[in-house]
Amino acid sequence: MIRRIHLRYLLLFVVLVLLQVLVMNQVLLGGYMNPQLYVLFILMLPVNTPGWFLLTVSFSAGLVVDVFSDSLAMHAAASTLMVFCRPAIIRLTVESIRWDEIVFPSFSSFGNIPLIAYSAILIFFHHTVLFFLEIFRLDEFLRTMLRIALSSSLTLVFVIIGFALLEKSFTR
């Protein structure tokens, strides 16, 4: 049981990174949208995952994407900040949750609105760090904010589709 779920996460990680690098990084909509689908992996980690593991695995996930995107350690920094905020955001959005049981974030365990709110807030944090690190200055502030808003929305759409598709395989 435990083994199988580990394998599923590993498979999910590989598929998401490949999708991110080979498909999402080529997506071009008006030059403003660059969806970061791989954050779905971080969003889907079980609620009771130990903190040190959350941080290490997200940092590594970001670093793998960095290697493929020539982006130094920007994705690693963004993912680390995002996952650091994750427990607090779960407390904020989801009303009752058992922290001592294995709960996988999904529509059925979180509820529709809380799951979307939880994803949206964390995606926004992630993209804010990522896009400001990429541009690395403030003189294109408004344009960068627009990029963040548009990319976050697109990522959120993909993440919601991802949650819907994976609902069955990660709830049991």
Partner: peptide
């Protein structure tokens, strides 16, 4: 981890 990534 955050500091390492930012410094890099």
């Amino acid at each position: 981890l955050g500091t390492a990534a930012m410094l890099f």
